[in-house]
């Protein structure tokens, strides 16, 4: 009797409280997924043992990656200094260079595509078809693009640049057409009343109107490309990931890999901080009144006098 009462009360509680009902559904769903994927607690316990062994081999990190000359670097390093030709410096420099090229090329290609995909600048048939192209470019992650281009152009930074550019076009294009669709309609109507063709409406009215958002997005994409530039190296597309892979396979020198990860971490944090400061200029407070200047960002006011 008491059990029946408990069940009845539980059902009453579940049916009366929608949050509890949804929570219960989510918990059941999670249990089903975990079961379907064959995840068990025992595997986690086993993993802890492996983690301990990995930690023992990786610690302390071997920072010789910053001092030893990488004679096997590709392309070959010709500087006298061992530091400048160390795996960490070459790898990080390549990663940043790949990110810069991919961001600039991606921006150049994505901007016209974004204007074609914006419904306020293009006829519906063109906007929809361009959106499909951009979506198709986003479907593949940068790692898969890197694999494709390593097959096409061989191992090296070129594959990385092409892979990151393709992904940048797809991703940045989407952000850009959303920014362009958000611009005020009045400048566009002024242009249309003047009888200007669509490309001039986009070039002289919509893009300048959205310029702050577009520049902010470009910087965000640069940050993203630096972070992901390390991953594509694992499949041979250049950058610091390529040097990590060199130590991982076949030598399994985890202490050097950890040192490279630490270097990557500090560089990414530094770029994030610089980018954040720059982007703040584009999107926050003062930007309402003043177009940001690179001089303000790169040179402090004290130096400017």
């Amino acid at each position: 009797m008491s059990e029946k009462t408990f069940q009845a009360r539980l059902m009453q509680l579940v049916t009366r409280r929608p949050v509890l009902r949804i929570g219960l559904i989510i918990v059941v769903l999670l249990i089903l997924i975990i079961n379907h994927l064959g995840i068990t607690l025992w595997k986690l316990v086993e993993g802890a043992g492996n983690l301990k062994r990995l930690g023992a081999e990786a610690l302390p990190p071997d920072f010789s990656v910053l001092t030893e000359r990488a004679g096997w670097a590709y392309p070959a390093c010709t500087y006298e200094s061992d530091f400048l030709c160390s795996p960490a410096v070459i790898g990080m420099t390549q990663t940043i260079e790949i990110a810069i090229l991919a961001t600039v090329f991606g921006m150049i290609l994505s901007l016209p595509l974004a204007a074609m995909a914006a419904t306020n600048l293009s006829p519906p048939w063109l906007a929809q078809s361009t959106r499909q192209v951009l979506a198709a470019m986003r479907v593949l992650p940068s790692l898969i693009w890197a694999l494709i281009f390593v097959i096409v152009v061989g191992i090296g930074p070129l594959a990385g640049v092409l892979a990151m550019t393709m992904y940048t076009v797809g991703y940045l294009g989407k952000l850009q057409y959303e920014a362009l669709e958000g611009v005020s309609k009045e400048p566009l109507e002024v242009a249309r009343t003047m009888g200007l063709p669509r490309w001039q409406v986009a070039r002289f009215f919509a893009i300048p109107e959205a310029s702050n958002a577009l520049l902010s997005q470009m910087l965000f994409m640069f940050e993203y490309n630096v972070r992901h530039g390390s991953v594509i190296g694992l499949v041979g597309a250049g950058g610091i990931g390529w040097y990590m892979n060199h130590y991982l396979s076949p030598f399994q020198q985890y202490d050097k890999v950890l040192a490279l990860i630490i270097v990557l971490y500090f560089v990414v944090v530094a770029i994030d901080q610089i980018s954040l400061r720059v982007r703040r200029n584009f999107i926050d407070g003062d930007a309402e009144y003043r177009k940001p200047r690179w001089r303000d960002v790169l040179i402090t006011r004290d130096v400017q006098g």
Partner: peptide, 15 residues
């Protein structure tokens, strides 16, 4: 041949 000055002027902002 036709010029328009809309209610909110239609100026390109930040320029």
């Amino acid at each position: 041949a036709i010029g328009l000055i809309p209610q909110r002027l239609g100026l390109v902002q930040h320029q």
